[in-house]
Design a protein around this nucleic acid. Structure first.
Length: 968
RNA sequence: GCCGGAGUGGCGGAAUCGGCAGACGCGACGGAUUCAAAAUCCGUUUCCCGCAAGGGAGUGUGGGUUCGAGUCCCACCUCCGGUACCA
């Protein structure tokens, strides 16, 4: 810092720390910090970068700027990361603490459509407003690293990563992605074999060019797939599975229907096992890891083929209970299953056609609504149970889902509750093949009210080839799978609930795909050098609400129909004058947020998405374990967070609503980049933390209806108890905690709070409310508490009459002790993200110093521990103290040290219990041994009185804590 | 239904490893200051009995382990979040 720092803020109207002064101080220092680039972070390659310091990458989930501006929930996590970042910086770390904006996607586009203003304009003005609001909080972001996902310089690399995935295939043997060129090479040389869907080897040499292309394209991590997708007519786009909740769109709650479509997909299922396994390596909230585990949904079982009667075909099913195959008395296929199509096409039972048509047209919402009673119809076809040789009917029913497994099941009504209910409804046979204890006989199934679903021992399960009788469920599974495999009927299989990620959207406001189609419909990538493929400006960007997907980019006719050369396809791939058609779907809103953590590291790099050197420094640092096999996991014995760390962002803070979507997608992209050697860690985020939601109060009448907050007043009765009454009626209403909403008029605008108290008070209030992870109600009445704390602090240091410093010459002994305690406590609490108790400790110090006063040195030390929380007032005091140590800004000062010896008093008061109840207190020198404490306790007159003539049978001494006498 | 989390004064919350329950803040009450008020400062504030000294009860409910439980174990109740026919 070469520019000398400004002198202190001049106060025109008084020297009291009030809202007006706070706002003047804050604005003054914010502009000084900005001018002197105080928050600038140097990285590898920057002049003056000190690589010997440890690094700390502290990331916030970047916001999606809406027209409504910042919500009070945003600054909660942002203040927390700001405090940690400032504390780490003061403790000698290089800290990367960036901010940017997520801006492509549906909400911005919907808003633009509503207002009739182009999304580029609405988005840019929303970003400007967000940035202004964020800056007003004094967060120490290095704004020189800011970007938005809509910046062509940024989405150029989003497109580049997509091309990387397009150019990759997943080697299931090595469990990693490799370049497509290696696949082609391997196939040509015969060192790699590929299989079809049934597991049969494909003869590569016998394929023609089109066949080869089909095989290669079908194996890309980014591929064009014909899939049944979630089509949302109201939004005019398809949605990913993760974006559909209870059959409705996550955004807007519109109905979603299933529809077969040809769309760009990501082969995320190939990574299912690694996405699951690596959850062990990361320090994430258990709830989030559980949610991801469940979403991935791994289950072990077997895939079995049931021959279809009067046909060469067979029906393949997945089951986790192959041991119950002898109890499979019928089969069920999903209404969408091809077998059903075939029967209907062949003119089967009209009731079947009706049922299937209804099931398909019903949105998933309705399917779930009447989920109580099972429905279904027989297809009229039969299959052979390969274990029993029995002919069993094939039904179709919507309790079997098309999207999971093969969309068909073997029904074992005795041992599966759903099958049991279905069998009872349609009077299908129930056959028991598992008993709970060994050597037990079966019980009459007619008496059953529910299926026996647990493990046990097999009975009545034998044929000429295999017998499971008497085996435990585990043994029976192994035995039957071995038989199935040797008989070529089936094989052991691991199935995942996770499905491939649908990555196309029929919307305007997203990244264009860097790909074109030739006249035969084959796709060809745009070359890296030609990126970005810029989103064309459209006058009419409105989505078409229709039954058929109609991407708005199709309206940019001149842009869409072009030549390979114009589109930037490598001439070696396609001659420059070849007529091509551009892809008119766009990427979904998640694309940009999958990798933004990497771009902050090196935001202006034009050669790479991030420089290798900077990526290694910020993501890997000196921690060694960037591999998937070694270290103990968080929570395990021997786990040391300082050493055992998979790398990645050191602290990522954001809401738990992204537990599956964003955080799973980001892990997936990061793993592709890791496999392709572009990044050095297998996981993007080493430690994740979710801040709780900030809620608000509302009121509820006796009948359960809600009352807006401004229609209620609080009255205090004689006993001091509070009662809330509805002003209009006088009726007593109950105060409840609710989400902030316009209708309850309990939404808090951060700008208003800052105007009333200043940003420092706002920051302190949100951090003092309670634990960061807890959901907490906003209570405007409580804000004054932390504001008074800052006023008392100000008053310790500043004479409110003339604004001069008022300090003691000699330190007060007790105040000095309190200061050491505060320094120790606040540092510890910041490390464990316990900001509420850190603030309580600082308040205690200020209360102790009030009326006594502090020396300049004491004031400076306290000021430095306050600085991460309330940086503006701390900066002002720092300057009024004349910049102690010659440090131009408190932001750049070092965290103060403390003397552990000062944390303890010379003498301590120890409670003495008799039978667990405190009966007296004794004062002893600190560090007294057990016998001293025991003797002092037994000599205490009050204790002698309480013990009376009872015998002291046992004395428990906890050194420094308490003495407990057992008498009787 | 299943998974995860939480129940502590009038309110938000604290108690980090089984060791003084209620830190800190709000509100309320009392006092000082003031012509008065605001602001500020000092004090009280879990509940019950008591003038007091003191005693009793107490961390959602019921049991248990322990010298000692808000904390550990078992059963249950309520609330919040996630998920939902995944074979």
């Amino acid at each position: 810092m070469t520019t000398p720092a400004d002198s202190t803020t001049e106060t025109s109207s008084g020297h009291r720390y009030d809202a007006a002064l706070a706002n003047r101080i804050e604005c003054h220092w914010q502009s000084a910090w900005e001018r002197d680039e105080v928050d600038r972070t140097l990285g590898p390659g920057d002049p003056g970068f000190d690589h010997t310091r440890p690094k700390f990458y502290c990331l916030d989930m970047f916001p999606y700027p809406s027209g409504a501006g910042l919500h009070v929930g945003h600054p909660e996590g942002y203040t927390a990361t700001d405090i940690i970042s400032r504390h780490r910086r003061m403790s000698g770390y290089n800290v990367l603490h960036p901010m940017g904006f997520d801006a492509f996607g549906l909400p911005a586009e919907q808003y633009a459509v509503q207002t009739g203003v182009h999304p580029r304009e609405t988005t840019v003005s929303a970003i400007d407003n967000f940035r202004r609001q964020l800056k007003r909080f004094g967060f120490s972001y290095d704004w020189s690293r800011e970007f938005a996902t809509i910046d062509p310089d940024y989405y150029r690399w989003t497109q580049w990563i997509w091309l990387k995935a397009y150019d990759s295939w997943f080697d299931s043997g090595l469990q990693k992605a490799r370049p497509i060129a290696e696949l082609v090479e391997g196939l040509d040389s015969g060192s790699i074999d590929i299989e079809d869907e049934d597991g049969d080897r494909i003869d590569w040499s016998s394929l023609d060019a089109a066949g080869r292309r089909r095989e290669i394209d079908g194996r890309r991590l980014a591929y064009l797939g014909e899939q049944t997708v979630n089509w949302c007519p109201r939004l005019g786009t398809v949605l990913a599975n993760e974006e559909v909740i209870d059959g409705r769109s996550e955004r807007g709650g519109h109905p979603v229907v299933r529809k077969p479509l040809r769309q760009w997909m990501f082969r995320i299922t190939d990574y299912a096992q690694r996405l699951l396994d690596d959850l062990q390596l990361i320090d994430w909230p258990e709830s989030t890891r559980t949610q991801q585990r469940e979403w991935i949904g791994r289950s072990e079982g077997a895939s079995i083929r049931f021959p279809i009667v009067d046909s060469d075909e067979s029906l393949e099913v997945f089951t986790t209970r192959p041991d119950t195959i002898f109890g499979a008395t019928y089969m069920v296929v999903a209404p969408e299953h091809p077998l059903v199509d075939a029967v209907v096409a062949g003119g089967g039972d009209p009731a079947l056609a009706t049922y299937v048509a209804e099931a398909r047209n019903r949105a998933d919402v309705d399917r779930m609504a009447d989920s109580r009673e099972k429905t279904g119809v027989p297809t009229g076809r039969f299959a052979i149970n390969p274990a029993t040789g029995e002919r069993i009917p094939i039904w179709t029913a919507d309790y079997v889902l098309a999207g999971y497994g093969t969309g068909a099941i073997m029904a074992v009504p005795a041992h599966d509750q759903r099958d049991f209910e279905f069998a009872r409804r349609f009077d299908l046979p129930v056959r028991q093949v598992v008993v709970e204890t060994r050597h037990e006989a079966g019980t009459p199934v007619a008496d059953w009210t529910e299926a026996v679903v647990g493990s046990g021992f097999a009975i009545d399960s034998a044929n000429e080839g295999v017998s499971l009788d008497g085996l435990s469920t585990e043994e029976a599974k192994t035995t039957i799978v071995a038989w199935l495999e040797s008989s070529r009927i089936g094989r052991g299989k691991v199935n995942f609930k996770l499905r491939d990620w649908l990555f196309s959207r029929q919307r305007y406001w997203g990244e264009p795909f860097p790909i074109v189609f030739d006249e035969e419909g084959n796709h060809h990538p745009v070359s890296e050098k030609a990126l970005p493929v810029v989103l064309p400006d459209l006058e009419d960007y409105e989505p078409v609400e229709s039954e058929e997907p109609t991407p708005p980019l199709g309206k940019a006719v001149e842009w869409v129909f072009t030549t390979a050369g114009e589109a930037g396809v490598d001439p070696e791939v396609l001659p420059a004058d070849t007529p091509v058609r551009r892809e008119i779907n766009t990427m979904p809103g998640w694309a940009g947020s999958c990798w933004y953590h990497l771009r902050y590291i090196d935001p202006t790099n034009e050669e790479r998405l991030v420089s290798r050197e900077a990526e290694r420094y910020w993501m890997l640092s000196d921690r060694k374990s960037a591999k998937s096999d070694g270290p103990p996991t968080p929570g395990e014995e021997g786990f040391d967070p300082e050493r055992h760390h998979v790398g990645g962002v050191d602290l990522y803070v954001g809401g738990s609503e992204h537990a599956v979507l964003h955080l799973l997608y980001a892990r997936f992209w990061h793993k592709i980049l890791f496999d392709r050697g572009e990044v050095s860690t297998p996981e993007p985020v080493g430690k994740l933390f979710h801040q709780g939601m900030i809620t608000s109060f509302a009121y509820r009448r006796g009948d359960g209806s809600l009352v807006p907050i401004d229609e209620v007043e609080t009255v205090t009765d004689e006993s001091g108890d509070e009662r809330n009454v509805e002003i209009a009626t006088g009726e007593t209403v109950e105060r409840i905690v609710a989400k902030m909403s316009k209708s309850l008029r309990n939404v808090i605008n951060p700008d208003d709070v800052i105007a009333d108290y200043g940003a420092d008070t706002f920051r302190l209030y949100e951090m003092a409310m309670g634990p960061l992870e807890a959901s907490k109600p906003w209570n405007t009445r409580d804000i004054v508490g932390v504001h008074r704390f800052l006023q008392r602090y100000w008053r310790i240091a500043i004479d409110e009459e003339d604004g001069s410093l008022s300090l003691r010459e000699e330190p007060d002994e007790a105040v000095e002790r309190e200061l050491h305690r505060a320094v120790a406590k606040v540092g510890d609490d910041i490390d464990r993200l316990a900001f509420n108790t850190a603030i309580a400790a600082m308040i205690e110090f200020v209360n102790a110093a009030t009326g006594v006063g502090v020396t300049a040195d004491q004031l400076d030390r306290f000021n430095r521990i306050l600085a991460p929380f309330a940086p503006h007032v701390a900066e002002e005091i720092h300057h009024r103290l004349g910049c102690p140590g010659g440090v131009p800004y408190v932001t750049l000062a070092a965290w103060p040290s403390h003397d552990p010896a000062m944390l303890e008093d010379d003498t301590i008061e120890v409670p003495v219990q008799v039978l667990g109840k405190v009966r007296s207190r004794i004062t002893v020198p600190a560090g007294s041994d057990n016998s001293t404490l025991e003797a002092a306790a037994l000599e205490d007159p009050r204790i002698i009185e309480v013990v009376g003539d009872r015998t002291v049978r046992k004395v428990i001494v906890v050194p420094g804590k308490l003495v407990n006498l057992v008498v009787g």
